[in-house]
Design a protein around this nucleic acid. Structure first.
Lengths: 242, 242
DNA sequence: CGAAAATATCGAATGCTATTCAATTAGCCT
DNA sequence: AGGCTAATTGAATAGCATTCGATATTTTCG
């Protein structure tokens, strides 16, 4: 009986396993050779299957790459969430710094995949990474930011999408610049301060400012208090004089 | 005699003209069909020459695209400089807004070329847009920024490369987001405030603050001084009265 | 259990293109 | 003019994704 109990369940998991094997092989080959450089034959060989078989799992090379990319972004999302979970600090800016450092590094290391994510739509018709996968990734930032607002560390009138554009946009642009200066003969731009500068901008621009100080330490609330006291005194004096 | 004077000068300019014709045809076809969709045959037909002839002008399809891209970036540089020249305002932030508006629009309209600029390096070996062409383009921003510093409109301790990364990075990221929400069923994000927000961030973060004034011209330091003087007077008076 | 039906796999054949190259043409010089 | 060089051509080549008929494996059901 047991020997007969081999229903579609087993078959399904078998197919799913094979699909994972193909995806894993594809990922490896794409990483090594890029999209154009990757040969379907080599992917098939690495997955231990025939060339044609790939096409019963994925429509085309482009769709295979797309599956790899979506898996890639999901992986990034998990990693970013992992970074957020492992940061001890509860302070918004410390956590932001950790996320920024992670993202910058990721973007530099995986520049090719990230470019392909947005180039695929153009080159190959109708094929593009689902927006949901990208949305999930940036949601890590969004949650951090909203929490910062809830905790009163960030201005409540800050515009989330603008902060997000600045965060991810600047970091990706910086990564490209860093890469370019690396291949360059010229003095490479220091990578280190990028993240610090970013955090410091966020602190200055989005940080809640319970008390903005002038150069000499004067604050609005402080001055207001002094004026009240003065007014009292003056009133007293003028009362005595009359 | 005159009929005989047809030296290499004529020949050279003829070749150069043909090169321009090829480039123009390639540009048109690439714009219409993208890189992969473009057929060398069609480019040749449009340029009115044989297929093989292209290869005596450009090594490969990728190098042809590269030439198109470099021409494209040079064109953008000229246009950006044109925008800067045509803006009447001398105020830094007004000029910045004009540049931002131009860049955002450009990035949205030419998203495919811009992606290809950075994707080419990855896909096709050894082929990438010369960094100089990109540098020239961003130099428009750099000059504007440095001038703003010279004129005392911007903090002198502002870091140029950071400002540049934020400017171009955020705008490009915003453009992608806008594009994505456009193809989306969801409510599209409003494009308009992107530029305004950007300028306002620059004003707040990089603007020189010789004395941040309230609406009525009051400054913290000024009020602080006035209060000190008042306090002195009051103390003197109260001393005299006692 | 066994055979038919359905499904999955295979890799040689196909088709599409960028690229090459041998033949041809046009330009230049004496 | 006529020889020499450089440019041009498009048919032939070659590389690769994709298809498809043949084959193997699994499932179904009498």
């Amino acid at each position: 009986m047991a020997s007969k109990a081999v229903p579609s369940e087993t078959q399904r998991s078998k197919l799913e396993r094979k699909e994972r094997v193909i995806l894993e092989a594809a990922r490896a080959i794409f990483v090594d050779h890029g999209f154009d450089g990757a040969r379907m034959q080599e992917i098939a060989r690495r997955a231990g299957i025939g060339e044609g078989t790939i096409y019963s799992y994925y429509e085309s090379k482009a769709e295979l790459m797309l599956a790899v990319l979506e898996q890639f972004w999901d992986g990034l999302t998990l990693e970013a969430e992992g970074v957020m979970a492992s940061v001890q600090a509860t302070d918004f800016f410390d956590r932001l710094q950790a996320l920024a450092q992670y993202h910058l590094n990721t973007v530099i290391v995986n520049a090719d995949f990230i470019n392909l994510t947005f180039a695929l739509r153009r080159n190959n018709s109708e094929v593009s990474v689902s927006r949901d996968h990208l949305r999930h990734y940036v949601a890590v930032f969004d949650r951090l930011f909203l929490r910062g607002q809830d905790r009163g560390e960030l201005r409540t009138d800050a515009v989330l999408w603008q902060a997000r554009d600045i965060f991810y946009g600047s970091l990706e642009y910086s990564a490209r610049s860093i890469e370019m200066t690396l291949e360059d003969d010229r003095k490479p731009r220091e990578q280190e301060p990028v993240v610090e500068q970013m955090v410091s901008l966020f602190r200055a621009h989005y940080g809640a400012r319970p008390e903005r100080e002038a150069a000499d330490g004067a604050t609005l609330a402080g001055l207001s208090r002094q004026i009240e006291q003065l007014t009292e005194k003056v009133d007293m004096l003028s009362g005595r004089l009359s």
